[in-house]
Design a protein around this nucleic acid. Structure first.
Lengths: 107, 107
DNA sequence: ACTTACGGTAAGCAATTGCTTACCATTAAA
DNA sequence: TTTAATGGTAAGCAATTGCTTACCGTAAGT
């Protein structure tokens, strides 16, 4: 009973360029919200809102430390997308084969 | 020199629920535009517009046959996303390790 | 030639989304 | 305790996006 689409929210979250940018920033190391906002062409509250969406999609995790919120990649959401795409890939290629066979249906 | 982000358009395209639905419909077999629209809660022109975006993202291909346009999965866009995520996965996990090591920095 | 099926495009509208500026709460430093 | 740093949330606005209807072109069928 897999709860329909953990990947749905993830795709939705990464559908936005700014969120992909934030996601990329966290690729190599955890950063505080302010750190993330620094250098981005949007305000800090805007970043906060993006962070919530990324968190809901389980693409990042937020860990509080003092007054700062450190964000880091959450493997769960990333894995969900990988699994979905890997699975999609397999069935799509299988379908391709079937079509090819039916097309070369020659005996 | 990889041309910055073939995956960008793909993530953008799959960021929309209706486009994910269309994408899913094509998973097992090619379908005409009308076939895709049939059963969806939106008009056929709406489907046409989604198809263009999916095509631009190289997630689907369109092959004309008589008066019908058959859509099918394009492995290119899917592969681009897979490669991006696989790569992301690797570097993110490597970063996790580094953090863990520095955290247990006890001598 | 007429008609029907298929489907792309444009214009306009409605809903959603992303951003900003407030404002407030919490924690650490003075 | 006062002050500064950090950051979440709300309200409002602007831009984008997705949808519809209308229209037109092309290819098959009659």
């Amino acid at each position: 009973m897999q709860k329909t689409g953990q990947h749905e929210k993830a795709f939705n979250a990464l559908g936005d360029p700014m969120r992909r940018l934030i996601f990329e920033k966290l690729r190599s190391r955890p950063l505080s919200v302010a750190d993330i906002a620094h250098g981005l062409p949007v305000s800090r509250p805007a970043v906060s809102q993006h962070i919530r969406i990324l968190k809901d999609a389980r693409l990042i995790r937020v860990r509080r430390s003092g007054t700062r919120n450190f964000c880091e990649i959450d493997p769960d959401g990333v894995l969900a997308m990988r699994i979905y795409l890997d699975n999609f890939w397999d069935t799509a290629l299988a379908a391709f084969k079937t079509v090819a066979e039916n097309q070369t249906d020659d005996e």
